[in-house]
Design a protein around this nucleic acid. Structure first.
Length: 119
DNA sequence: GTCTTGACGTTTA
DNA sequence: CTAAACGCCAAGA
């Protein structure tokens, strides 16, 4: 078996978007995670931008809680891509997460790491 | 094949 | 704190 330090699957088997969606769907309500954590769980730690890109393409998908994905600082950088700019914050607050200045309060407390949870 | 685009992250000034 | 420059990597043109 050849060394595959990055992707555990062959290139033809890799469905980057689907993997992102699969993980995002598993984020529990009231919890959040970061683009980098998802990318790292997939096996491409440096593909955090792609995770965000996958979210951009997730509008046609169903059941994707994109509001639970923020950047490493807990900032709602992607709120502008929702139907309304404030929808992301509203969804988070409806799940008990406080947001101030586009940043999640006590981000570490609500952070959900798929790499740890999906062992 | 090349080139551009990004809901990111890190570093530097 | 802001601003800019890189690096990163998958997808589309």
């Amino acid at each position: 078996m050849k060394s595959r330090l990055k992707s555990p699957l062959k290139k033809s088997d890799v469905h980057f978007f689907e993997r992102v969606y699969e993980i995002v769907r598993l984020i529990p309500p009231g919890r959040v995670t970061s683009y980098r954590a998802i990318a790292r769980c997939i096996g491409s730690p440096g593909a955090s931008r792609m995770v965000g890109w996958a979210m951009n393409a997730s509008h046609s998908e169903d059941g994707i809680p994109a509001h639970r994905v923020v950047n490493r600082l807990g900032m709602l950088t992607g709120k502008m891509h929702f139907r309304h700019a404030e929808l992301m914050q509203e969804l988070l607050e409806s799940e008990g997460i406080s947001v101030e200045n586009d940043r999640i309060v006590n981000f570490e407390k609500f952070f959900w790491d798929p790499y740890k949870e999906l062992i």
